[in-house]
C-alpha cells in the first residue's frame, strides 16, 4: 500500500469516529439507519442473530443487495466477506463498497490465513479480541479495527472484555522500555515496528470501534467510555421492537456518551431491546469471536 492509500483509507475511518455503523439487510432498513444519523451501514444478507439461528454456512451477501443499499443512501456502505476469502473481497471491491469487513460473523473460508488487505484499493475493517489480533490485522493491511464481541447475542459482555483487553495491553506497551518491545513483539506475535508505533501513540495506529452485542444506548456509551472511537450495532437495532427510535437513541448516546443526563433522556421509552443470550449458555464451538486469530 502506498502512503496516500494508507492516509485516505485510515482517514475514512477517522471521519466515522463518534458515530454508529448499523447492520442493515435491505434498502428500507438502510434508510431508517441514515435517517437516525448512522455514519455508515453494513450491508448483510441476515443480521448476526439470524445467522446464529439459521446455522449452516454464512457467506458474503448477494451483490444485488449491496447495490440496492448503495442506491438508497448517501452515507458509506460497508459489506462483509468471509475471513480469508480473497475472491469475496475482490467482488466487494468491484462493487465499490466503501469498506470491507473481513468478519468472523461469516463462516471462515481459510482457517490459516486472512486476506492480504494491502493488495486492495478499498479499505478493510477487522475484528480483534486483544492487541495481538489487532496488530496482526493491521500488519495485513486493515485500515480500521473493531472488537469482535460476540455478535448476535445482544450481550455486551464480550465487547467489554475485548475493549478492556486491548486498552490494558496498550497501556502496558506504552509503559515498556524500548528494549523490552522485542520480546513483547515475539509474545504477541506481531511486527516490532507496529508495537513501537503503539508505544509512541499510546493507542492503535488506526481507528478502533466497538462491536458485538451492543443493544442499548447505555451499552454504546459504555463502549465509548472504555475507549472505543465509535460503535457498530448489528442485531441490536432491527431485532428490537422499535428500530427507528432505538437507532436514533444509540446515535445520540455515542455523541453524548459523557453526559449521563442526556443518556437518561435518550434511553427513555424506546421500546424493548432484543432479547439477548447469556454467553455462558453458548457452547465454545458456537462462539464467533474465536474465529480468525
Amino acid at each position: 500500500m502506498n502512503n496516500d492509500l494508507i492516509v485516505t483509507n485510515r482517514g475514512l475511518a477517522q471521519m466515522l469516529k463518534g458515530g454508529v455503523i448499523m447492520d442493515v439487510t435491505n434498502a428500507e432498513q438502510a434508510l431508517i439507519a441514515e435517517k437516525a444519523g448512522a455514519v455508515a451501514v453494513m450491508a448483510l444478507e441476515r443480521v448476526p442473530a439470524d445467522i446464529r439461528a439459521a446455522g449452516g454456512v454464512a457467506r458474503m451477501c448477494d451483490p444485488l443487495k449491496v447495490k440496492e443499499i448503495q442506491a438508497a443512501v448517501t452515507i458509506p456502505v460497508m459489506a462483509k466477506c468471509r475471513i480469508g476469502h480473497i475472491m469475496e473481497a475482490r467482488i466487494l471491491e468491484a462493487l465499490k463498497v466503501d469498506y470491507i469487513d473481513e468478519s468472523e460473523v461469516l463462516t471462515p473460508a481459510d482457517e490459516e490465513n486472512h486476506v492480504d488487505k494491502s493488495q486492495f484499493k478499498v479499505p478493510f475493517v477487522c475484528g480483534c479480541r486483544n492487541l495481538g489480533e489487532a496488530l496482526r490485522r493491521i500488519a495485513e493491511g486493515a485500515s480500521m479495527i473493531r472488537t469482535k464481541g460476540e455478535a448476535g447475542t445482544g450481550n455486551v459482555v464480550e465487547a467489554v472484555r475485548h475493549m478492556r483487553k486491548v486498552q490494558s495491553e496498550i497501556r502496558k506497551v506504552a509503559s515498556m522500555a524500548e528494549e523490552e518491545l522485542f520480546t513483547e513483539a515475539k509474545n504477541l506475535q506481531v511486527p516490532y515496528t507496529l508495537l513501537l508505533e503503539v508505544r509512541q501513540l499510546k493507542r492503535l495506529p488506526v481507528v478502533n470501534f466497538a462491536a458485538g452485542g451492543v443493544a442499548t444506548p447505555a451499552d454504546a456509551a459504555l463502549m465509548m467510555l472504555l475507549g472505543a472511537d465509535g460503535v457498530f450495532v448489528g442485531s441490536g437495532i432491527f431485532k428490537s421492537t422499535d428500530p427507528a427510535v432505538r437507532a436514533k437513541a444509540i446515535v445520540e448516546s455515542v455523541s453524548h456518551w459523557d453526559d449521563p443526563s442526556i443518556l437518561a433522556t435518550v434511553s427513555e421509552g424506546i421500546g424493548e431491546a432484543m432479547k439477548g443470550l447469556d454467553i455462558h449458555l453458548i457452547a465454545e464451538t458456537d462462539r464467533l469471536a474465536s474465529r480468525g486469530q
Binding site: M15, K35, G37, I75, K248, E252
Partner: peptide
C-alpha cells in the same frame, strides 16, 4: 471538522 454531513446535520437538529 470532516465526518458524515448527514449525521452532523441530524445532531445539530436533535
Amino acid at each position: 471538522p470532516g465526518g458524515e454531513s448527514t449525521t452532523m446535520l441530524k445532531m445539530l437538529e436533535f
